[in-house]
């Protein structure tokens, strides 16, 4: 894959995806017809009356090959041919989701760059993230903070995600391997494993983690949904949740939710191995090392030795005035 790792899906195409395709409808009709025949077949076999003919019809129906073959690309990049009727939609079960979620995307080293000179505190990143992960307005995977180092230095806004440290204190202290570091650099949390001891919260210097103190916002709506470790949905009461670098979107070749939601071009996201990051607003892809070098990039609290995968570009040459934002009064809801 090249720099264009991230698909830029036009709106029209996105909409098309949501409509069930005709072939799918056919499948549904076909399978219900078969179910019906199967039931009839069982009854027929059990009874003594002349149902044998129907049963024979069912057998014939089942064995008849349509002869049509389709070409399918396997996971290990082999092109194979299989009968059309054997094609089934792939829906990973919990085990598959957990296995692939813990391994990560091979050959990638995800990295985020935030240009603070562009952040006007639109908080679209926050909203997009909370929407995707079914969080309440005061539950954060990403939060925009007002920062001011001292009274005579300027105030600025700083979106703060999980730093996805290469030396993550949270992972060290987790007693049950619920939070872990993947090969692509992402630190994830498995809420099927988390025991809710909150040691990771105590250890994290970036206050990046949140805990479900009560039943999560989407508990009813998400009921029955298979848990996706890369989206951390359904969220679970009594477990930790945190920024995931939108691992589910990365798997689909798309930019994280916050990155593509930003209207001001704050976020760059990409692969350190490719030395390229893409701006979520302009979709412009730039050379990572050049971006960092030319803008005096830094990381948060490097003295702690956590080695974050999130870089910040200082808030210099801002083309807008800093406007103090008064947050709404957040009230706990159940």
């Amino acid at each position: 894959m090249t720099w264009q790792f991230f698909k830029q899906i036009p709106m029209s195409e996105k909409k098309k995806k949501e409509v069930p395709e005709d072939s799918k409808l056919d499948d549904i009709v076909e399978s219900s017809r078969r179910d019906f025949l199967k039931k009839v077949g069982i009854v027929g076999a059990a009874s003594v009356t002349g149902a044998a003919a129907i049963y024979a019809g069912y057998r014939h129906e089942k064995e008849k090959p349509s002869g049509e073959m389709v070409k399918v690309l396997t996971e290990d990049n082999r092109l194979v041919e299989i009968p059309k009727e054997q094609v089934k939609d792939y829906k990973p079960d919990l085990k598959a989701l957990q296995t692939r979620g813990r391994v990560g995307l091979k050959g990638k080293k995800w990295v985020m760059v935030l240009d603070l000179s562009k952040c006007r505190n639109a908080r679209k990143c926050v909203a997009a993230c909370q929407g995707a992960h079914h969080l309440r307005p005061y539950e954060y995977h990403i939060n925009t903070l007002v920062m001011q180092e001292s009274h005579n230095t300027p105030a600025y806004y700083m979106p703060k995600t999980c730093q996805h440290c290469d030396n993550p204190p949270c992972v060290s202290v987790c007693p049950v391997d619920a939070t872990f570091k993947r090969q692509d650099g992402i630190v994830l949390i498995d809420n099927e494993r988390c025991i809710g001891c909150r040691f990771c919260m105590a250890a994290c210097p970036y206050s990046a983690r949140m805990f479900h103190w009560q039943k999560p916002k989407g508990e009813e709506a998400d009921k029955g949904q298979e848990y996706n470790i890369e989206l951390n949905v359904p969220q679970k009461k009594g477990t930790i949740s945190k920024c995931l670098f939108s691992a589910d979107r990365l798997r689909e070749g798309m930019l994280p939710y916050c990155v593509s939601a930003c209207p001001n071009g704050v976020f760059y996201f990409g692969d350190e191995n490719e030395n390229a990051v893409t701006n979520g607003t302009t979709k412009e892809t730039v050379i990572l090392s050049e971006l960092l070098e030319k803008n005096g990039a830094y990381r948060l609290m490097p003295e702690l030795g956590t080695k974050p995968r999130v870089y910040y570009l200082p808030p210099k040459n801002r083309i807008f005035e800093f406007k103090q934002w008064t947050p709404p009064e957040y009230i706990e809801t159940t």
């Binding site: 005061y138 925009t144 903070l145 007002v146 970036y206 609290m301 957040y330």
Partner: peptide
């Protein structure tokens, strides 16, 4: 904590 506590109840 190290970073300011903001925008919470």
């Amino acid at each position: 904590p190290f970073l300011p506590v903001q925008n919470v109840p």
